[in-house]
Amino acid sequence: MTLTDEQRTEIRETANEVRRDVIRMVHAAGCGHPGGPLGMADFMSTLFLAHLKLTRSNLHAADRDRFILGNGHTCAGYYALLAQKGLIPRDELLRFRKLGSPLQGHPHRNAELGIDFSTGSLGNSLSVASGMALAAKLNGWSTRVYSTSSDGESQEGQIWEAATSAAHYGLANLTVIVDFNNIQIDGVMREVMNVRDLREKYAAFGWHAVDVDGHDIDAVDAALCAAAAETERPSAIIAETVIGKGVSFMENQSGWHGVAPNDEQAELALAELA
């Protein structure tokens, strides 16, 4: 199924709102990670609005879809999307990273807010997503399990253990979207530690694997539809993105991986995202 014009508009508007929230949240916290979530906003909005079945009404349904943010440091955008879905109260967003807030610096599982799993230590989540997918399969549920990952996280060995076992057990209900922006903390991924062609790697591990432009919401939607149509293999969508997307001075800069904008920078960023 292709996106309707209405859906396309809604996803674009949501992605922009998410970007604005990310700037506001990280600015209010005075620390955090703006770059990643700005880059992920387009594919995350496509996933959350057009594919992931998670709403207020099915929140507590055992067989509903699950989502794990494997690259947990990018949670500002995830929280903003959960707020868009009415699962996180909007005024909570500005308490991000503050003492006592449920919106922790890295996601902490929270059944009421729809945060399905605790993450933050890279490498762990694809295994957990596989376990969830395995349980859903065991129960005969139509649950789909989505996880994000990243080029940096793909350096962790456990990712490839999960890739092996998920294919071995034929977890067709599992989809990972890899935020591939070629940036990690210490700089350009291909210079720090080159993970090479992730589509080829996942394919070699027995996955249905595709490359997409992570900012092309139609392409992302098509890839998610194809993943849902798989019956034998888990799916990997390698989403090429630009870190900091939408804020000119943050784009492609590893320096914006984990630094908060100051007042002036936040204002500039919000003006660009108006």
């Binding site: 890279l122 210490d186 530690m193």
Partner: peptide, 25 residues
């Protein structure tokens, strides 16, 4: 992948032949 935070970066800049960034691994 944390040389800026752990502060090993200065060693890496001075002695690049004896500094290895292993990535997130």
């Amino acid at each position: 992948d944390l040389s800026g935070s752990t502060k090993t970066r200065a060693f890496g800049a001075k002695h690049p032949e004896r500094f290895f960034n292993m990535g997130v691994a």
